[in-house]
Write a protein that binds this DNA or RNA. Structure first.
Length: 422
DNA sequence: CTATAACTCTCAA
DNA sequence: CTAACGTTGAGAGTTATAG
């Protein structure tokens, strides 16, 4: 068994460029919610030294100097583009694992005598032509190696034209290549681990590949030991074709403007719970407990700080927005303290299980579930847009709404957003 | 004491 | 003019708590 890992290049940036070709070759970024941080960078911006996650306001002067364009994130567009890309790639193997919005693994069982380099080129070419997005392809005998291979393809380290197959290198070539890649590029090795590994003299991928497995398990973790094995070509991570149901569902957001009142927080929590409950119903689960949390802005150290959260069990597991919201608002009242500038709130659905065979309750619920009502609400919001039907507790003013200063049109999902051609 | 729950840390996109 | 810093999910490891 071997794997392919296909990854979109600067995915969000590339999505914007598909519909606005003037952005090609321009230094540009896409920002996180509230136009807060840089979450995607074009090659031109990377060359200027802009790092991932940098707060946008800190880049303002650099941006002026180099005419960096910044787009608010348009997740509706990116999700739709992702679906198109995944659909094309799914035709290249009977086994696909969609790992994130911009990357997927393919299982290559029985592709032993394929010309993988040519196969990868076909994927690239077809995704570019049919969807408009540039991608890179990496092949390897384990998922970790396929990931690393993709990294090489992107950096033109051992690949040609955005495709790389580490399996085609001789042992000597591979050894040399791995000794030139920093250990931090390995899947699962973040900044913290990079530092800890460096203390033990492990700085390159090659170092990690040859590290003593028992030492790694004892000094680090079983996870890293698995990574070492995978680097040696021993497959420890399987392809997960169907995503398992989530064990928890979170909906949280920073506000566009500080919120000071309980009413304001109640509106936000109601909205977040509506989104979370939609996700819950989509995977046909019910929740046994609800967590709600609020906090002030931790970056403002001259402001009084407060953060709190509370978990409220629901009387019986449910996916009914009204009952879940009721519990969340109960919790919110409990933790709310007046006199603070709140910057973020969120809800979490916990103790999830399959709906359908719910435990019969001993006592009658004060508020009974209304599954048909929930179904009508979900359908209406899909058909006519989010927020078409909602609970009154969400309110209407929403002065705390996200900041999205430079949002591109929903080119692929809204007729209204299509530019007029005259 | 052990078993579990709750919480913290790390990583990923 | 100033102030302006993401979201979601998982897993492992550690600490607190119940019995």
């Amino acid at each position: 068994m071997s794997f392919a890992l296909i990854d979109g290049n600067n995915f969000y940036v590339s999505c914007e460029r598909v519909f606005n070709p003037k952005l090609e070759d321009r230094p540009m970024v896409v920002l996180s919610n509230n136009d807060g941080c840089v979450v995607a960078r074009s090659a031109e911006v990377k060359a200027l030294g802009v790092i991932m996650g940098e707060p946008w306001f800190k880049l303002k002067s650099l941006a002026r100097k180099h005419h960096i364009l910044a787009y608010s994130s348009n997740y509706t567009l990116y999700a739709d583009m992702s679906n198109r890309m995944m659909a094309v790639l799914s035709t290249y193997s009977p086994q696909q694992e969609i790992y994130s919005i911009d990357e997927c693994f393919l299982g290559l069982d029985g592709f032993d005598h394929f010309d993988l380099m040519a196969y990868g080129q076909r994927m690239r070419q077809q995704v570019k032509q049919w969807v408009g997005l540039p991608v890179c392809v990496g092949f390897g005998s384990t998922k970790t190696l396929a990931k690393l291979s993709n990294h090489c393809a992107k950096k033109f380290l051992a690949g040609q034209d955005g495709v790389c197959d580490l399996g085609q290198l001789s042992l000597m070539q591979l050894d040399t290549l791995l000794s030139r890649i920093n250990v931090g590029e390995v899947w699962g090795v973040g900044r913290r681990l990079t530092d800890k590994l460096a203390e033990r003299g492990i700085t390159t991928v090659r170092d990690l590949q040859h590290a003593d497995a028992r030492m790694i398990r004892e000094s680090f973790s079983v996870t890293l030991e698995r990574t070492v094995r995978e680097l040696r070509g021993v497959s420890c991570l399987e392809l997960e074709e169907l995503a398992p149901a989530k064990k928890q569902i979170v909906s949280s957001r920073a506000f566009g403007a500080y919120v000071y009142t309980l009413t304001g927080l109640e509106e936000a929590v109601s909205l977040y719970m509506a989104r979370a409950a939609e996700k819950l119903r989509r995977q046909h689960s019910v929740a046994g407990a609800v967590q709600v949390f609020i906090r002030t802005n931790p970056f403002k150290d001259d402001h009084p700080q407060y953060q709190s959260g509370i978990t409220i069990p629901v009387a019986s597991p449910t996916s009914d927005t009204r009952r879940l919201t009721h519990s969340a608002l109960l919790g919110l009242k409990h933790i709310f303290k007046t006199g603070y500038a709140y910057q973020k709130a969120g809800v979490m659905l916990m103790e999830l299980r399959d709906s359908g065979h719910e435990q019969a309750t001993l006592f009658k619920e004060p508020v009974p579930d209304r599954p048909k009502l929930m179904d009508v609400i979900d359908r209406a919001n899909v058909q006519w847009g989010q927020g078409t039907l909602k609970l009154a507790s969400e309110g209407v003013e929403k002065i705390w709404h996200m900041k999205r200063g430079n949002l591109s049109p929903h080119y692929t999902t809204s007729w209204q957003d299509l530019p007029r051609v005259n």
